[in-house]
């Protein structure tokens, strides 16, 4: 069953409504929804975080380590200035260290945890460790954080509730090989609670993505340049966000087509939270989002941010989509395996 279908079946009469509500409560405690979506999110978020760590290997000390211009003293002072979060603050302040050796160990831990979480090895434990690592790295360089770091933190946190290791993971392979034993009543209870947590986590992730788009659109509606269609005229001429300035300036000269693109951007973001639950239309919205993000990633020097928003969009693809994708990949690989 897909997440949207579980959340919104057709309701004709109040009695139907009550029956559906009971049915839905039943489903939410018995059936983990969107297991493939959770796995895709796990692979996408941990893969991008790992890529980011490795890409910044030469810059790690300056971004997160004792060599940062945001010195450990400034970091500590900012944590203390915010105050109040005392007892649990070690969860996200653990990277504020003066010691290069401690930092090197933390960096190696972050790489190892990201890689193991990506593979889905002891996923439950790795999910918690990954959230711990991401929170520490995010907070240490929050002064220079962009949307990529922010979304990594949010997804890593929500994924702690989910069961993202049930598909496409080492854990799933091991579980498939094990002979199924009968399930005791306490084990059944545990599984039901885990299922509710997973479903709540997936709903929170979907809601968070909808908040991201809805808020981004509402912010833009306040701006005069988004209303008169000239926003992209300016955005494409910003030196800070131009990977290929000649191409950007050529696009910026398109005039009314560019204004139309600005309106499509705002309208698609604004309607995303509603349209993403409409059976066929949602693919159109997701393709528009994909196009927007590819454009932003390639032209506007925001590749990691674009990549992680695409991963967030993938949560809305239903399980049958991923099953078909899996089948297509198997077919592509099968002839090669035979010829070997």
């Amino acid at each position: 069953m897909t997440l949207p279908r579980a959340l919104g079946p057709e309701i004709a009469t109040p009695r139907d409504g009550a029956r559906h509500a009971r049915h839905r409560l039943h489903a939410v405690t018995r059936t983990p929804l969107g297991l493939y979506g959770a796995a895709v999110l796990r692979i996408g978020v941990s893969g991008l975080f790992l890529l980011n760590l490795l890409r910044e290997a030469a810059h790690a000390d300056r971004l997160w380590g004792p060599g940062s211009p945001y010195t450990p003293e400034l970091f500590r002072a900012s944590v203390e200035a915010r105050g109040a979060d005392g007892r649990l603050s070690w969860w996200y302040t653990w990277l504020g260290t003066q010691s290069p050796d401690y930092f090197r160990a933390a960096y190696v831990l972050a790489v190892a945890v990201s890689a193991l979480y990506l593979l889905g090895w002891h996923t439950r434990l790795m999910a918690v460790l990954f959230a711990f690592v991401v929170a520490g790295f995010y907070m240490r360089s929050a002064v220079a954080a962009s949307g990529f770091e922010l979304l990594s933190l949010l997804f890593a946190n929500y994924l702690v509730l989910c069961a993202p290791g049930r598909r496409w993971s080492l854990d799933a392979r091991r579980a498939a090989r094990a002979t199924p034993a009968s399930v005791s009543r306490y084990e059944e209870l545990r599984r039901r609670v885990v299922t509710v947590l997973h479903n709540a986590g997936m709903a929170l992730i979907a809601f968070q993505v909808m908040v991201v788009y809805g808020t981004a659109a509402l912010y833009k509606i306040r701006g005069a340049t988004w209303r008169d269609g000239s926003a992209l005229h300016y955005a494409l001429r910003l030196d800070d966000f131009a990977t290929f300035p000649e191409l950007s300036v050529r696009l910026a000269g398109l005039g009314s087509a560019l204004a139309l693109l600005a309106y499509v951007t705002v309208v698609s973001q604004l309607l995303f939270p509603a349209l993403v639950f409409v059976p066929r239309l949602k693919y159109v919205v997701l393709v528009v989002m994909l196009g927007t993000h590819l454009g932003i990633g390639l032209l506007m020097a925001l590749p990691m941010f674009s990549a992680i928003t695409v991963v967030g969009d993938l949560v809305f693809l239903p399980t049958p989509f991923w099953l078909r994708a899996e089948r297509a990949v198997r077919r592509l690989r099968a002839p090669r395996a035979k010829s070997r």
């Binding site: 949307g147 922010l150 908040v211 991201v212 808020t215 981004a216 912010y219 833009k220 509606i221 306040r222 701006g223 005069a224 340049t225 988004w226 926003a231 992209l232 300016y234 955005a235 910003l238």
Partner: peptide, 9 residues
Amino acid sequence: DWNIFAPDP
């Protein structure tokens, strides 16, 4: 924090 290029770039 979702105000990238908003309200105006």
